[in-house]
């Protein structure tokens, strides 16, 4: 459905995406994962024809560079942050987006209903919270009921509650049969939202794998900051060292290095030793 071959993007002498190859099947959900500057957003911009590129992108049998309008007609795009058209109301923005796709105002009402924006339809964009802005971006992308959705860091600017709500909405979209391409640097979301992860670093593909294999494939680590009850940090440190964990003490508790997707192992080791944990924090 989407075939990307030898995609390369340069800004002057700097290559931000290098020899990127990816095939996405219909209904598949794929994440472009990596740190800031990895080239994820640039790949999405290439798909939308917003930037020039070398290589080829084919969507539904059409070359994206040559048939930009037809290709974009099949896509809905959710920007990282909707920080424009501040004086428009939710309804006005969606009506404008609908008019650019020759859709009726009735479709705007339907989509508002779908993403639970009906009660906010008369609010100006600048009055919306980050979560509502994200929903507005998704609503705009859903207007044409597109077979493909491109979501650029859909949860990056959200607080915990809004993030949970957005993930729930994105899970629904995943199961609606659409093809999803999501950029993200949150590893935890990947397992819930995608079938495959394309890990990128400095514009190149590091690995393509299932979301549950990503941490092992890349050897991703996190630091767990464990605060013990009864000031039992010294005992906790000893237990963790005996179990083979790299750990050290700080003024509040114990810092233990864990696999990015295996944080529970350290917690289980402490509990099995009969130690009581008061609090936990994940450091990256």
């Amino acid at each position: 459905m989407i075939e990307i071959t030898s995609l390369t993007k340069r800004y002057g002498a700097i290559e931000v995406v290098s020899e990127f190859d990816l095939d996405v099947s219909p209904g598949e959900s794929v994440a472009l994962w990596g740190p800031n500057g990895a080239g994820k957003t640039t790949v999405v911009r290439c798909l939308l024809g917003l930037v020039t590129y070398e290589g080829s992108i084919t969507v539904g049998g059409l070359d994206a560079a040559e048939h930009g309008k037809a290709v974009r007609g099949a896509m809905g795009y959710v920007p990282q942050e909707l920080s424009f058209y501040d004086d428009m109301t939710v309804y006005e923005l969606l009506d404008y987006s609908a008019s650019l796709r020759f859709l009726s105002p009735q479709r705007v009402d339907e989509v508002c209903e779908t993403v639970h924006l009906t009660d906010h339809a008369d609010k100006r964009v600048r009055e919306l919270s980050g979560g509502l802005k994200q929903r507005l971006g998704i609503a705009s992308a859903l207007l044409p009921d597109p077979p493909i959705l491109l979501l650029d860091e859909p949860t990056s600017n959200l607080d915990a509650r809004a993030r949970e709500s957005a993930i729930s909405l994105l899970e629904d979209l995943r199961h609606s049969g659409r093809t999803l391409i999501i950029t993200s640097h949150h590893i935890e979301e990947m397992a819930m939202l995608v079938d495959r992860v394309v890990a990128m670093e400095a514009g190149r593909i590091q690995v393509i794998c299932g979301p549950s294999d990503l941490a092992d494939e890349l050897g991703l680590k996190a630091w767990l900051h464990v605060i013990m009850n009864n000031g039992d940090s010294a005992t906790a440190l000893q237990v963790l060292h005996e179990q083979g964990f790299a750990a050290r003490m700080n003024s509040r508790g114990v810092l233990v290095e864990v696999s990015a997707q295996g944080k529970g192992e350290a917690v289980a080791a402490l509990q099995e030793a009969g130690l009581s944990i008061r609090d936990l924090e994940v450091w990256r």
């Binding site: 939308l48 974009r72 920007p79 942050e81 987006s97």
Partner: peptide, 17 residues
């Protein structure tokens, strides 16, 4: 201004030349 705010990218993400 549209380029700076991201509005131009949003507009051109539609089937608009």
């Amino acid at each position: 201004g549209q380029r700076e705010s991201g509005a131009l990218r949003f507009l051109l993400s539609h089937p608009v030349s």
